[in-house]
Nucleic acid binder design. Structure first.
Lengths: 168, 168
DNA sequence: CACTACTTTCATAAAATCGTGAATCTTGTG
DNA sequence: CACAAGATTCACGATTTTATGAAAGTAGTG
């Protein structure tokens, strides 16, 4: 069998995509730099890059990368690991990053629910506004419950797809 | 039966809640002023206020209110109606505002999915990065499908709760 | 059709956010 | 334990976002 040349990527186009999609994420409330770093990692074949590679790729300072990966780390979208034999850290996107990004909303929803619940008490459960908040709380409770099952189903669906297209 | 005095609200506390929760929404990517207007309406018993009431309540200019309600209107979270007999518009939160706020994400997801799909092609479906994007697309397709059923279930659940606690 | 009561637009000012460079800290190495 | 490679922090300047006041627009009313 002949050795294939590595499929050529239009780096220009990829880079532009990184910026475009990062902007979409930024519209959705992500920190801008974190979105850029995240997409740079996602589009990288290995899904892992060092801080200086990221800085070079995105034309930003090491300081900016540092802040961005800290944020991504807290969301558990990126993991840090030490590059063996060097003092460099490597940042890697988690495989189910999107899954985590969506499920990562969970603490947020919990927080919202708690505050809404306090508000319901504050407003008085028999007042129209209070009733509105009680129902809001119900909604977020429901939402969280559903999310669990949904992600369960996703994993099953994903494994099915993987078995189908990429049987290992 | 004795006529109850209207249940007294701690307006100070309600106002503080409005600000706190608006800040949470703002963290989640909402425009700040829109979040404040939204919460002001939510905490109002009638769920409806005029522009000047909102301006007074939030201590902002009419211009700020105008911008905020336009944004909320586009998301279909607030409706505008004319106050009969006056030249004032009143803004009203839709009853299933939260439902709409969550489902309103749908166009966003569609947009993301489209861009991710393009990226998958760009990267080449056989490359590791390309495969990552293919799976991302699958994920968002799955998500949108699930959201439909979920909201269906929410409506059923909500009606059940209403029948239980507030039989009319 | 002029007057009045609101609403919206727009240029500008104020405030928040973001990225940088320089300094500092951490950690591995000889 | 001194040195060096990287990572992180922080004060500052730059950019972007946000709210305002003033002006213009719109639509009821007499």
């Amino acid at each position: 069998m002949t050795q294939m040349t590595p499929p050529e990527r239009d780096e220009e186009a990829v880079s532009q995509f990184v910026e475009t999609f990062a902007a979409l994420l930024s519209d959705a409330g992500w920190q801008r730099m974190s979105a850029r770093v995240f997409m740079a990692l996602m589009t990288h074949d290995s899904g892992a890059m060092t801080a200086s590679e990221l800085a070079e790729r995105l034309q930003v300072s090491p300081a900016a990368v540092s802040g961005a990966v800290r944020y991504l780390g807290r969301l558990d979208l990126v993991t840090r690991e030490r590059q063996p034999g060097t003092r460099r850290d490597i940042y890697r996107v988690r495989n189910d990053a999107w899954h985590d990004a969506v499920m990562g909303r969970d603490p947020v929803l919990t927080q919202w629910e708690a505050r809404l619940s306090e508000a319901a008490d504050l407003l008085g459960p028999e007042t129209p506004a209070g009733r509105r908040f009680t129902e809001s709380v119900e909604f977020f409770m429901f939402l969280q419950q559903e999310l669990g099952g949904m992600m369960e189903r996703w994993r099953a669906h994903r494994d099915e797809l993987r078995a189908k297209y990429d049987p290992r």
